[in-house]
Design a binder for these strands. Structure first.
Lengths: 205, 205
DNA sequence: TGTACATCAGTGAACGCGCGTTCACTGATGTAC
DNA sequence: TGTACATCAGTGAACGCGCGTTCACTGATGTAC
């Protein structure tokens, strides 16, 4: 009762400190904050526990180990990305959809560099986690719709993506990575947009 | 004299153990081996020293700190990449140069995943190192030649790369990353080549 | 409505680990005279 | 050709650190009767 008084907590009910209330959610938020502030190499499970005002052993009850937490963070990242791509898609004129989604993808990467990075980093995640996989597929799905012009993806059996959609994705992803890694620092600020303008050329529209 | 007898060393002269002979080169090789065996997260300066048969303090005389060594490794990686791209460029028929360079780039990434990764990882390197920067530019230069069809890059003042060349590079780089990160695992093995075939479409040839 | 009890979700101390870096040092090398 | 000496390139012990994870535990909650 006497400690953690100044720690903000998400609690459904009263002030009882022993049970946190929603530790799972709180830990994911803490992890996001650490990534944003300190980057990928600055993340640690203990720090996430510390920020949540909880003992270092607590996270294991919810996530098993450090990969478990990061996998949840990555899945949430994909969900956020999906939302932002969807939102860009809906706002765009029919002719400029692919470009709009492209800009949103790049913007997401620039705004959340460490999060974007761990979302793809095998060693840090449990890449077989169903939630993570589903979230990743959903994001790709939006991109695919933007590239093919389909309104809603037909709910048939899982399909192989076409090479032109993957090519557009690869270009976008590469652009994002090169930007984050500083490889385009010497180019003008308009270069990225020019590259995105070229996307329809490969997507074949 | 009595220790490190079974450690392979690169020595110019005699058997004297106290001075290594070419510790700088040996440490870079050791680091490459660690990256290949254990990946990016498995790398440590101490392990590099251990493998070279040298005390943990020795590397600091040559590289200052861990970033120094990794920067040298990254620069060497770029030189190796440049060689392989050049070699692919020279072997290819005039019409298929860009594709050939693309395949070589992807192949390099697949053969040296951890090395390829650190070559671009800001946090781990001193990205202002002149040797590193020059090596990176040289690699890009080959790609640029392949994309534009110029035989030799004209030695004029440093230029802004065209957006179409950067787009081709981004596509290739994204393809490499997505492949390494397992994002294309469910696609057919021929998908990557199909994507590479699309490169001339953006490079505008 | 009250009580017994199982289960859940925490504690906090302790573990062993490998790491990067510093330190005072010393052996080997090369150069000036 | 011989010697003194500065410089270079190592040693190895020690530092403090933060980490992930384990452990026996305990407080709070919810459910069965």
């Amino acid at each position: 009762m006497k400690k953690n008084l100044n720690t903000v907590k998400i609690q459904a009910v009263a002030d009882s400190t022993y049970h946190h209330g929603d530790l799972r959610v709180a830990l994911v938020s803490a992890a996001e904050a650490i990534l944003a502030e300190r980057g990928v190499t600055g993340f640690s499970l203990r720090e996430a526990a510390r920020r949540t005002g909880v003992s270092p052993a607590a996270p294991s009850h919810h996530f098993g180990d450090s990969r478990g937490l990061l996998t949840a963070v990555a899945a949430k990242g994909f969900r956020k990305l999906t939302d932002q791509l969807n939102s860009a898609l809906q706002k765009a004129t029919k002719r400029a959809r692919l470009e709009a989604v492209g800009e949103a993808y790049l913007e997401f990467a620039k705004r959340n560099p460490a999060l974007f990075t761990i979302m793809w980093t095998r060693d840090l995640l449990d890449q077989s986690d169903p939630d993570y996989l589903a979230a990743g597929r959903a994001a790709f799905n939006v991109l695919e719709r933007a590239a093919t012009g389909e309104e809603i993806r037909v709910a048939t059996a899982p399909h192989r993506p076409s090479s032109s959609v993957v090519a557009a994705w690869a270009m976008l992803h590469g652009l994002a990575r090169l930007t984050l890694d500083g490889a385009l620092d010497n180019a003008g600020p308009e270069l990225a947009s020019e590259v995105i303008e070229l996307m329809p050329k490969i997507a074949g529209r």
